[in-house]
Every structure is written in structure tokens, then in C-alpha cells.
Computed example of a mutant assay.
Amino acid sequence: MKVVAFERNLQGTGASRRLRNAGKTPGIVYGVGAEPQLIEVDHNALWHALKKESFHASILELEVAGKTQQVLLRDVQYHPFRQLVLHVDFQRVDPSKKIHTKVPLHFMNQETNPAVKLGGAIISHVVNEIEVVCLPGALPEFLEVDLAAIEAGQSLHASDIKLPNGVTLVQHVEQENPVVALAAVPAAAVSAAEGEEETPAAE
């Protein structure tokens, strides 16, 4: 995805307020051994881009003053109650150096899972993103979590996620191996099932 930004010379609360009143969002680009660069981005274009999942988890092509650089979105500050982006941070990436970033999880085949269709189980998505490490060129837009075979009472962990080549879980996630999804049977369904077992068959 491409983002067009402009150099910003003035900083401070007053300058930022004037920018926002003019439909611009102040921001900054930093990293990869270069000086931080103050930028401004069209607010409406940024607002619509932020609604796209891929904007948060992809390498972006940021154009400033005719020069393009690869960046990751690192931070967004929103107004507490208005539909307004107050500030945005981008981090430059080096194509030859690995990055640590969070990738969205897409849960697949939940509707066809036998424990859900026949056993009354409810599958909970415990986390919706996972932190990985990879080269920028290998960064996946999302990772799939296959729920087709999870059984009632079982859980899927981070280690169960199939990772593309060149992508690994960050060390602390790999060590902790957190639960990403679990299939639970509601107490009411369990009671009903037990009641059916206890009811003697009519002669």
C-alpha cells in the first residue's frame, strides 16, 4: 500500500492544531539510522486507510518529497470522542533486517466444525493477533488458524498456527505458547446432555 505524505517544518501544539484544522494529520517517520522526519498526511485518506486491516500489518510505501521509503505503521493517536486522528508514527524498515511486528489472525472453518454443529460448543477467539519476526519481504498480511478439527474442551495454541517460510514467533510468544482459541461447551448444554443420559428409556 502506498501513502503520500509531505514534509512538515513547524511543530508544537499550535502548529499541529492548524494542520488538523486544514484537514491534515501530523506524523513522524523514524528508524534505520536516519534522522526522524516530520510529516503531514491527508486526514481523510489516512482515516479510510486505517480501517483496512492490511494497513496495520503490511510494509507500506511512504512517499515524502518524491522519495519513497518502506515503513511500518507503529502508532496512531485518536481523539477520545471525535472521528479524528491526532498523530501517526511510521518506522522505516531495512529490507535486510528482521522486524518484530504483530500480524492479524484469521479464524477459518468455524462454521463447519463438528463440535459446533453437533455438540453445541462455542469457539472463543482468545487473541486476534500474534507477534512474529521475519524479514520485511516475508511479512504475511495475516495468518490463518484452522478451527475445523478442534474438539469440545480443546484449545489451540500459538504453536498450532502454520507459519509461512521465513516467519517465526517471537521468542517470548514461542516460550509462553499462549492459547489463541478454545472450544467450550456451555453449562446449559452439558446439563441437558447429562439429563438425557439419566432419563431411562421408555419400555
Score class of each variant (00 low, 15 high):
residue 2 K to V: 09
residue 4 V to H: 10
residue 5 A to H: 01
residue 6 F to E: 15
residue 11 Q to G: 13
residue 12 G to S: 11
residue 13 T to A: 13
residue 16 S to C: 14
residue 16 S to K: 05
residue 17 R to L: 13
residue 22 A to K: 15
residue 24 K to W: 08
residue 27 G to W: 01
residue 28 I to F: 03
residue 28 I to N: 08
residue 29 V to M: 03
residue 30 Y to P: 02
residue 36 P to G: 08
residue 37 Q to Y: 01
residue 37 Q to W: 01
residue 42 D to M: 06
residue 43 H to F: 13
residue 43 H to G: 05
residue 45 A to I: 11
residue 45 A to C: 02
residue 48 H to W: 12
residue 48 H to L: 11
residue 49 A to Q: 12
residue 50 L to F: 06
residue 50 L to N: 07
residue 51 K to T: 10
residue 52 K to H: 12
residue 53 E to K: 12
residue 53 E to L: 06
residue 55 F to D: 03
residue 56 H to S: 05
residue 57 A to R: 03
residue 60 L to W: 04
residue 60 L to M: 09
residue 62 L to F: 07
residue 63 E to S: 13
residue 66 G to N: 14
residue 66 G to I: 15
residue 71 V to W: 01
residue 71 V to I: 05
residue 72 L to N: 04
residue 77 Q to D: 11
residue 78 Y to C: 00
residue 79 H to W: 10
residue 80 P to V: 13
residue 81 F to Y: 15
residue 81 F to M: 06
residue 82 R to A: 10
residue 84 L to R: 10
residue 84 L to A: 03
residue 85 V to K: 03
residue 85 V to E: 02
residue 85 V to F: 06
residue 86 L to Y: 10
residue 86 L to W: 11
residue 88 V to G: 06
residue 88 V to Y: 07
residue 97 K to A: 11
residue 98 K to W: 04
residue 98 K to S: 04
residue 99 I to W: 12
residue 99 I to D: 05
residue 100 H to C: 10
residue 101 T to M: 07
residue 103 V to L: 01
residue 104 P to V: 05
residue 106 H to C: 07
residue 110 Q to S: 11
residue 112 T to A: 12
residue 113 N to L: 05
residue 115 A to E: 09
residue 116 V to Y: 02
residue 116 V to L: 06
residue 117 K to L: 12
residue 120 G to V: 03
residue 121 A to N: 02
residue 121 A to W: 01
residue 124 S to W: 05
residue 125 H to K: 08
residue 126 V to F: 04
residue 128 N to E: 14
residue 130 I to G: 14
residue 131 E to P: 03
residue 132 V to D: 00
residue 132 V to G: 00
residue 134 C to S: 07
residue 137 G to C: 01
residue 139 L to Q: 06
residue 142 F to W: 11
residue 142 F to R: 06
residue 143 L to W: 01
residue 147 L to M: 11
residue 147 L to G: 08
residue 151 E to K: 15
residue 153 G to Y: 02
residue 153 G to T: 06
residue 153 G to K: 01
residue 154 Q to Y: 01
residue 156 L to E: 00
residue 161 I to T: 09
residue 162 K to H: 10
residue 162 K to S: 13
residue 162 K to V: 15
residue 166 G to S: 10
residue 168 T to L: 12
residue 170 V to W: 03
residue 170 V to P: 03
residue 171 Q to A: 14
residue 172 H to W: 13
residue 173 V to S: 09
residue 174 E to M: 13
residue 179 V to P: 01
residue 180 V to M: 04
residue 181 A to I: 02
residue 182 L to N: 14
residue 184 A to N: 09
residue 184 A to D: 09
residue 185 V to N: 00
residue 186 P to L: 06
residue 187 A to N: 07
residue 188 A to H: 06
residue 189 A to E: 12
residue 193 A to L: 10
residue 195 G to S: 15
residue 196 E to R: 15
residue 197 E to N: 09
residue 198 E to S: 11
residue 198 E to R: 07
residue 199 T to V: 11
residue 200 P to D: 14
residue 201 A to Q: 12
residue 202 A to S: 12
